[in-house]
Design a protein around this nucleic acid. Structure first.
Lengths: 335, 335
DNA sequence: ATAATTTCATGTAACGTTTCATAATTCATT
DNA sequence: AATGAATTATGAAACGTTACATGAAATTAT
């Protein structure tokens, strides 16, 4: 006799229902069995409150039903949003997520990938800036924001269109002289297409523009220095700024205000990502919103689909513009 | 012969090293074996690049090495921070985290708890406001921010001390007439002790104070209405506000500024939680910072420790005050 | 030098599932 | 009614690990 608190197994269900082990397995997995058998098994399952042991399943199938998510830092809002939506998409498909905050550490990233090549996870969704990550051919991998060869699908926002949209919007809002700001290295990743899109948009709308790369440190010195360079008689030499991320936009806006420049009156700012400081509150700034739920769904779809042949090398998903108080919208309430 | 891409097992290691299966198991688990045996096994493990199959381990031990984290919404910054640190603390102990965003849905919460009573997770860390969650005696459970009976340990910040600290700080900063604002229901949970702490602090410093409960909707109407009630001749009737969360503080500050009240010149605001809009940037407001890394460590410690007898019913961890631009600090740079 | 004792590697059984060859049943055909 | 073919339930084997009873070897005592 089983102890009171032990968990019922298929064996128990089989005994209760008076059928064979294999029959219970079939019922559990939705494989057709005789009507009367099915009913008896279903009754027994309900009576014993049986649930399959997914670890035994995993052992048998050499599957873990676990997907690793490699992501720099889950506290950063954009990444936190990805975590939320990818987790949701995986749970919907009865998969677990192994969350790996790599903290931009290449060694740790490689460690997790190696782990996947062993038997711990069925696949990896990775947002990684590590250019020399070694991924074996037979390890299911989906990249976010970074192409890693033709064998590995990459999912990203339509960054080019996003940059273009930002330029067009600044033009619509009356800007004539704009700047593009970004931080970090010029890796060949998808987000860096924002620049090309922005340039394209500026050209098509006849905006004069300037490109600037800043260091993303903890101090505002770099930002202040850059802005000071462009101030003549208390006036900034451009009236619109497109920042490659909301994070940068946030820092720039703080710096602008410290220098007694008004946003959006003196200079309008558009960021990228669509970050809100809290759930349900306004955006941090006017911004190009990434379709995070759709990115998440697409990643999971690509990772778990069986027909490998049809995997596209790059999927770009449409972005949208959203007002966040740092632009002068003609038709919106003015804060 | 094993196929090229299949994962090596203990059997393979045993064959390679010329020892028995059990010997390999011992080496892997750090149980002492003869020197020569250990060395041979270790060599074989390295040569084959062997890693244990934790699912087989789990099946054998009836352990899943998985802990469920029940949390309302992982996108909300405070919760995202908890997710990050609890995940880290679990990974350090070779445990996985099953992330469950309950979206404040009681049914879903109960579902996850039931799952734990089956065989899917070894324990639960839960931040849940559901007062009638059914937890079986034998399910390891650690609560965050809410006492759930004497059998279940609860981890929280020292909310009382936090409230007190806020009052004292407002007094130190020259406030004489302050308000306490909170939203949501008056459940008997730990965060609600912030109010008592604040009252206590006000009394000990001779501050006159007012308590107000607001609805936390998406609109600012409620906030505007409340503030308008307290404005005479363009002046607010209090010079300091303590908000029960940074989220509320953020919304109140936005409303204050919309009403042309200056923060911190006209009214100083202190929040609670310690939220930054992005990693490494300033706090959203001056705030009482919760020790999230310590809370995470404590939860995992309590959950995984074997000696159940020594589990305290409630652990309160110390909070700190941090400047975030919405108070008039005498000795800090003035933004 | 032999017996008694300790030490330690061995190999089998078991964890809960799925798969597959086998056996039992049903149904159609003669 | 008896046979053969098709259908379907059965139960043993296997997945990779750990625990435990067994037995072999080494050590100590006589």
């Amino acid at each position: 006799m089983r102890s009171e608190h032990s968990v019922p197994t298929m064996k128990d269900v089989a005994k209760e229902a008076g059928v064979a082990l294999g029959t219970v397995s079939k019922v559990v997995n939705g494989i057709p069995v005789g009507e009367s058998y099915r009913l008896r098994v279903e009754d027994a399952i309900k009576k014993l409150n049986y649930q399959v042991n997914s670890y035994a399943q995993g052992l048998k199938a050499s599957k873990t039903y676990t997907v690793a998510l490699l992501i720099p830092n889950t506290e950063e809002p954009f990444f936190a949003s990805l975590v939320y939506h990818i987790n949701l998409a995986l749970l919907k498909r009865k998969y677990r997520m192994l969350l790996c905050s790599t903290d931009f550490d290449s060694e740790q990233e490689q460690e997790y990938v190696t782990m996947a090549q062993q038997n711990k996870v069925d696949g990896i969704i990775g947002l990684t800036y590590n250019p020399n990550l070694q991924i074996e051919e037979n390890t299911p991998f989906v990249a976010i924001d970074r192409s890693m060869g033709t064998k590995i699908p990459c999912v990203a926002s339509d960054n080019f269109a996003g940059g273009q949209l930002a330029a067009e919007r600044l033009a619509d809002l009356g800007c004539t002289n704009v700047a593009f700001l970004r931080t970090g290295s010029a890796l060949d990743n998808e987000p860096n297409k924002r620049k090309a899109g922005f340039e394209n948009g500026c050209l098509s709308r006849g905006l004069s523009y300037e490109m600037k790369i800043l260091n993303d440190g903890d101090s505002y010195d770099e930002f202040e220095y850059f802005l000071a360079e462009h101030i003549r008689d208390g006036k900034l030499s451009f009236d619109g700024i497109f920042c490659v991320t909301d994070r940068l936009a946030y820092l720039i806006i703080k710096t602008l205000r410290r220098l007694n420049l008004r946003v959006p009156e003196d200079v309008q700012v558009i960021g990228f990502d669509g970050i809100r400081p809290f759930q349900g509150t306004d955006y941090v700034c006017s911004t190009i919103v990434q379709p995070v739920p759709e990115i998440a769904e697409m990643c999971v779809n690509l990772l778990l689909q069986e027909n490998i042949s049809s995997k596209p090398p790059l999927v770009c998903l449409p972005v949208t513009y959203a007002y966040g108080g740092t632009t002068r919208e003609p038709d919106i309430w003015q804060g």
